[in-house]
């Protein structure tokens, strides 16, 4: 089985994230970049399916600046076999629609994919629909927010879990599946895995290599534009008291004064 995993380098959610004041895009230099946690779960899910299906290969696909190679290395050291990295200066400022179009083109360069796995929502953009958009473009079914994935023969079944409930979905392969937080606990790369990752093939594609029209991506191809972005003034601290046995009463009094109870 040929499995493709979409991964993304994101700002660490434990650091403070900023928007660039000049163009309203994410200031990627202001924060540490890491492989998004949810992608590690997608990689783990891919590896588990690979291990259960002899002769499978896992290809990592990402788009982003050069430093996205760190995210690729992490996925390869976990056990993915190879990677394709779409990297082109013209991609900067791409919106959700053009990102999905570019990813669909890159997936198209991977020979005969059966299953595309992705995280359900990146922690930075939080669009939460890229996997479904890519599926629509590829003309294959989207089974999203998976809590469980079962691949049997030529079909895939997913237990989809969202705030609205649980839906069991099934589809014929090839298909796109996005995984949720609870799908699994990703493995740590072993020392052997880290060493092996250094020798695994990483193909870097430019837009032209992937057959993508530069006018369709990046800030130029974006279908919407951010016209202003301002930090909201931080909330200032109010009153702070030390509990002297009456802390609960004092909160209640404060809530009454604010007409909240």
């Amino acid at each position: 089985m040929n499995i493709v995993v979409l991964v993304k380098q994101v700002p660490d959610t434990y650091s403070e994230r900023k928007l660039d004041a000049s163009d309203g895009t994410l200031d990627r230099d202001a924060t540490d970049a890491v492989l998004d946690e949810i992608n590690e779960r997608a990689v783990e899910a891919a590896l588990q399916i690979k291990e259960a299906n002899d002769g499978s290969a896992v290809t990592v696909v990402t788009m982003g600046p050069d430093r996205a190679t760190e995210a690729i290395r992490k996925a390869l050291s976990m056990g993915a076999d190879k990677a394709v990295h779409l990297s082109d200066g013209a991609l900067a400022g791409s919106d959700a629609v053009s990102t999905a179009k570019a990813l669909a083109k890159v997936i198209g360069t991977v020979d005969g994919f059966d299953l595309v796995l992705a995280g359900n929502e990146a922690s930075d953009g939080r669009g939460g629909a890229t996997p479904a958009m890519v599926a629509d473009l590829l003309g294959v079914p989207a089974l999203t927010h998976a809590r469980e994935i079962t691949v049997e023969g030529s079909s895939v079944t997913v237990r989809r879990e969202t705030d609205d409930g649980v839906t069991v979905l099934t589809a014929e392969l090839p298909a796109v599946v996005s995984v949720g937080e609870k799908i699994n606990e990703p493995r740590y790369p072993s020392f052997k895995g880290i060493m092996a990752a250094k020798k695994k093939p990483v193909t870097t594609l430019s837009l032209a290599d992937a057959g993508i029209d530069a006018g369709e991506v990046g800030a130029a191809g974006a279908l919407s534009s951010v016209t202003s972005a301002q930090p909201k003034p931080p909330k200032s601290a109010g009153e702070k008291v030390t509990d002297e046995g009456d802390g609960g009463q004092r909160i209640a009094a404060f809530l009454v004064s604010q007409k909240l109870i």
Partner: peptide
């Protein structure tokens, strides 16, 4: 406490 309107240390 930096963003609390009312804080109790306890």
């Amino acid at each position: 406490f930096e963003i609390a309107d009312f804080g109790v240390v306890g």
